[in-house]
Amino acid sequence: MAKKVLIVDDEEDVRTYLNSLLSNNGYETEMAEDGEDAFRKVKEFSPDLIILDIIMPNQSGVGFYRNLKKSKIYSDIPVIILSGVTAYKDFFARERGGLPKPQEFVEKPFSTEELLSKVEAYLR
């Protein structure tokens, strides 16, 4: 059975890109455009992995990540942060506010090989 990946990015072009990339590599995907939407999709879709953008309207990636990690049911879902703002790499590395570190940080623009190898590492 295909592993499930939730793509969270407010930019439709990036969602389309990731959706195409992951589907072509045998993953089942679902997409969300902000943190609030993402939490709904987590409940409905039960992903095995989340790829998360940070700067988004309504609820940002940081807000979503905080809620996810506080949740008793979903806190174990691995998260790959995908952002163009490298400062967030340090932000998460410092375990701000007692938050556990995300599994990976991938900087935009990214290479497909790099992202796929990191996805594969968690869904093997």
Binding site: D13, T16, Y17, S20, L21, G84, K108, F110, T112
Partner: peptide
């Protein structure tokens, strides 16, 4: 940072075009 986002978009566009051509999917 803005240029990084544009580059990601361009990478994405090229990938999806190639994927559409490989899959012979005109819509994609």
């Amino acid at each position: 940072h803005g240029i990084k986002n544009i580059l990601t978009g361009l990478d994405g566009g090229i990938y999806v075009v190639n994927s559409g051509l490989n899959n012979k999917d005109q819509k994609e």
